[in-house]
Amino acid sequence: MRKSFDPTTMLSHITVDKVGVEERVARFQTRSIKSESKLQGLKMVLNMIDLTTLEGKDTPGKVQQMCYKAQHLHDVHPGLPCVAAVCVYPSMVGTAKKALSNSSVKIASVSTAFPSGQSTREIKISDTKFAADEGADEIDMVISRGKFLAGEHSFVFDEIAAIKEACGKARLKVILETGELSTLDNVRLASDIAIHAGADFIKTSTGKIQPAATMQVTYTMLMAIKDYFDKTGIMVGMKPAGGISTSKLALHNLVMVKEVLGNAWLSNDWFRFGASSLANDVLMQIIKTETGLYQSTDYFSID
C-alpha cells in the first residue's frame, strides 16, 4: 500500500477558478472539427466507449446483447472499430466474460457498493475481489463522498489504496462522483487523492447523479493528470461518464484531451467515454460524414 495521504503538505496551493475554467472550456468548444479530422475523431470516439448498462433490471440476456453490439457496432458499414469495454455490475461479469470470450473488448465492472459507496471497507474489498475473480479487466470504484466532504481525506486515500490492492491485475478507475462534490476545488483535491492513491483512471461520475461529466469537471481532472505526469512521468487515464450523448460533445472532449494532455492520451488505454447512447449518435454522424445523408434512428441497433 502507498503511503498515507497528507493533503496539507502535498496540495496546499492548488485552487481552481470556476469562471476561468468555464472560459477555457468555451475555447475548446469553438474548435471546428471538419472533414478528415472529424471522421478520424468519430472513429476514435467509438473505440473509446465503455458501453454501459448499470440498472437493477439488467438481465443476462440484455448483457449478452450489449456484448454483441460492442463487437459489431454497425456491420453494414465495414471498417469500424469496436468499443473499448463493456461496463456492468459484478453479478453480470461472468455473463459478459462468456459473451466476449473471443474478443478484445474489455470487461469493466463497477464495485465498492456502487453507486453510493455506503458500505464497510470489508464489503467493498470483497465486492471488488468478486468482480476481479469473475474476470473483470477493469474495476470502476466509487469514493466515499461523505468522508471526503467531512474532510477525512486520509480515509478516502486509504480506501482507494486498499481497493487498488484488491484489484490484482485489473486496472482501477476511481469514480469521484463530481456531482456530489459541489466545487471544482473539491474535484481537483479528490482527483489528486485518487491519483496519488494509485488510480489507473479517474472517472467523473456514476451516471446516477446530475450534473455528471461536464466539460468543466473533466477539464479540472485533466489538469490534475497533467500536473501528476509533469511531476512523475506517470500517465493516468481519464473517463468522463454520464451526460455525453452526442458526437459533438464527444469531439469537444477529444479536443480538450488533445490540447491539455496531448495526442499520447488519445487512445482507449488512456481515455474512455462512459456512455450508453453515444455510440449510435456517433455511428449516425459517421454515415452522414461519408454519405452526406442522415439515416433514421431505426437503422441503428439499440442493444
Binding site: 471538419k34 479530422s37 475523431g41 472513429k43 459489431h72 472499430p81 469496436c82 478484445s104 473488448v105 487512445s267
Partner: peptide, 15 residues
C-alpha cells in the same frame, strides 16, 4: 468481430 486496436490514431490533427 471488429478489432480493438488501441492505436487507431497516433496523431489527431485538425483539418
Amino acid at each position: 468481430a471488429n478489432t480493438n486496436s488501441s492505436k487507431i490514431a497516433p496523431e489527431w490533427n485538425y483539418s
